[in-house]
Design a protein around this nucleic acid. Structure first.
Lengths: 227, 227
DNA sequence: CGTATAATAGGAGATATCTCATACTTTGGA
DNA sequence: TCCAAAGTATGAGATATCTCCTATTATACG
């Protein structure tokens, strides 16, 4: 992680959307943190030192299941909070958060801003709204994706985790995230290659026909609108 | 709906958990509403007149998909809010809410309490915490249930929607909720009957072997803990 | 450097689930 | 009162997905 000194935090905070979310009083504690792809923003179980608000980039959230296996929970991107639950409830068990691409965050040291934020109605309203939208989004997505075969969900997952047209998630992880067997994931992946949508390059895949993948992925939502 | 006059609202509000959630100032607007099974607490699309907090009972939340079909979204029970999103964001499109069993709610007329609640840090904190817990719960449930065949999810659904040991959801609705075909739902339901867990009684089913259903349902979570 | 463990890879048969077809019954209006 | 639409039921064949098995690389670690 690198503390970014160039971007003046004041400048960011003075403009929407940050201006409408955070109270002015946090300005003196605010920092901008830059993470490289692969870097950890938080180690699972640690009490997070910062409340992050993602400015750009993409992160993956992990947690360790009771069987000891680490599972990918979801992706977060710009305008998402990291550490919001821990801010609300100190005893909360934090998740592992890893940058998927280069990521820039607004970073607020919890020790200093907790009291401030938990007493700011504008911030709390925004947070509640953010959370409720997330719930809507989740439940809509879930009920829909349940109905589609892996083909569709995998296409979406590839597009979501791809970086510069290269897909290189671990298959074990992807299989678990998508709720299918490792075997079947490989099967469908092989189909994508056979159709010329992906090209295998060592242990990663090059996206050769992005629009086909997009069609396959968005059909999940398209039907919801069209049908 | 029947406005309940017996239970003094003041009494309820003076005790936890209500005492810690709502500011005292709402007391003069608060009512207790009783709904019978099947009654609607809110009609989809209507701007809800009340923010409800469920005291007891169980409700179903519906919404109409773009294809015109009405789909069951989820169940809510004690300690859940109804109309929270609409409170936060007025333009929000409300969902249909129907009592599944007899249900008692604390009812707060939005016109009077909106300003009050949206400026109360204790309430907003509670709401944010409630929402974030719901997110955790949802995503844990989702990633897990994805992995299990209909057998397990159906057992859970039956227990969730059963009333006095009688299950009588419409199969069309259940199938959509569970994300499986109508055909397959009937198939698995028939298996449950064959195993003696359910007994068909006209168009409803009697729960004959609840513990078996519970085993089947909780295996979803049990493995998460044991494995 | 060598070995244990995780990840990758693919074959084969078993299940779960879907689609399509068809028929009967209930229910809500015109 | 009667019809159209929705719900219920069931059969049969097609797919999607799983489980089990077996090899072959990577990767971590003493």
């Amino acid at each position: 992680m690198k503390k970014n000194q160039q971007t003046t935090v004041e400048q960011l905070l003075a403009q929407p959307p940050l201006k409408t979310i955070f109270p002015e009083a946090i300005a003196k504690f605010a920092e901008v943190h830059d993470f490289e792809a692969g870097e950890f923003l938080n180690v699972e179980g640690d009490e997070p030192a910062y409340l992050y608000y993602i400015l750009s980039g993409k992160v993956k959230v992990y947690f360790t299941q009771s069987n000891g296996k680490v599972a990918l929970l979801h992706f977060l991107s710009a305008h998402s909070f990291i550490g919001d639950m821990e801010l609300l409830e100190a005893r909360y068990y934090s998740k592992g958060v890893q940058a998927s691409t280069a990521t820039r965050c607004l970073a607020l040291p919890t020790t200093y801003v907790r009291e401030l934020l938990l007493n700011d109605v504008a911030f709390l309203r925004h947070l509640a709204l953010y959370l409720s939208k997330k719930i809507m989004h989740n439940s809509a997505k879930m009920s829909q994706s349940l109905a589609y075969p892996l083909e569709n969900r995998l296409a979406e997952f590839i597009l979501m985790s791809e970086n510069d047209n290269i897909y290189q998630e671990k298959h074990t992880e992807a299989a678990e995230f998508l709720g299918v067997s490792y075997r079947h994931l490989l099967h469908v992946l092989a189909q994508f290659v056979a159709r010329g949508w992906l090209e295998k390059d060592g242990r990663s895949y090059i996206l050769r026909h992005k629009s086909a993948l997009q069609d396959m992925a968005t059909s999940i939502f398209a039907t919801a609108i069209t049908d």
